[in-house]
Design a binder for these strands. Structure first.
Lengths: 153, 153
DNA sequence: TATTGTTATACTCTATAACTATA
DNA sequence: TATAGTTATAGAGTATAACAATA
């Protein structure tokens, strides 16, 4: 079952990549845009910690999206070393399209299942994910906050 | 749900990698050893086509496992250009250990679920995988056999 | 002294295109 | 001519360690 889960997850991830490619986005771009829609004005390091992306890679990722006018590096109100990374109007609009593409994929992925089966599957996957989160939060509780610290990932 | 599936699948795959690391194996090694246990004496290209690994990468992969005495390049009975790649006794023994490690991971992964729920989940994942296979086989039916041909993957 | 963003360097992984020996 | 295995080269992606500005 673990094998099946891994394989399906890998394929769905790849399909999401294909779906986003039409918008000129990759999965990591999507992840950052999605995060910026919820949590506003965070520093690059804070965002990287949430996404498990190291500081040097965040530079390239943010350079990329900023050069396309989708996000902005604004001065951070409390720390002149840092930027407050912010979604622009164009970024928000493209994110909406990306979310729509993800929803289409969702529908396509679920098509082989009956409505009732989808609910079952969703519930079971949630249960697994929550159990895993509980484990991770416990394990991460003792770690210095703000740092990726993904040595023993 | 697609997102949840992708995330869980990714994490399980990573955990399998950690479980195999103790045996000095990576997931790709495991995949090849597993394949060799079932289908004996195939050429490198045939194996690569099944695993979606290009010929040049197969060389390095097989070099690696052969240098550790886990597999052998024997002369191919019907084609002097090719090798009949074969699992050795040591390879078979290590594969058994790897399968045991994978089974342990399976048990750990399923722990948050009741026995009945596991059956449900397994059934639903199988249904999704089979639907996907049906699609792929149809799409692949027109492609020249024996070639990876992963242009539009 | 520690931290934010950045850059430079090296290293790994991979794809592509050659090459040889056979078919 | 096409195919099996191999090798060489170049390119992408990444980690690591430095750096200047600020805390």
């Amino acid at each position: 079952m673990a094998f099946l889960l891994s394989r399906l997850g890998f394929e769905v991830g790849r399909e999401l990549g294909h779906a986003l490619a039409g918008l000129g986005l990759e999965v990591r771009h999507f992840g950052l845009l999605r995060l910026l829609a919820d949590r506003k004005g965070h520093s690059q390091r804070a965002l990287g910690a949430m996404l498990r992306i190291t500081p040097n890679r965040m530079v390239a990722l943010i350079d990329d999206l900023e050069s396309r006018g989708l996000i902005e590096r604004r001065p951070h109100p409390a720390d002149r070393r840092a930027y407050a990374v912010t979604l622009t109007g164009a970024g928000s609009a493209l994110l909406d399209q990306a979310l729509q593409a993800a929803l289409d994929l969702e529908v396509r992925t679920c098509r082989p299942l009956e409505a009732e089966e989808r609910e079952q599957l969703l519930g079971l996957l949630r249960k697994l994910a929550e159990a895993k989160d509980a484990l991770n939060n416990e394990a991460l509780a003792g770690i210095h906050p703000g740092m990726p610290a993904s040595d023993e990932d």
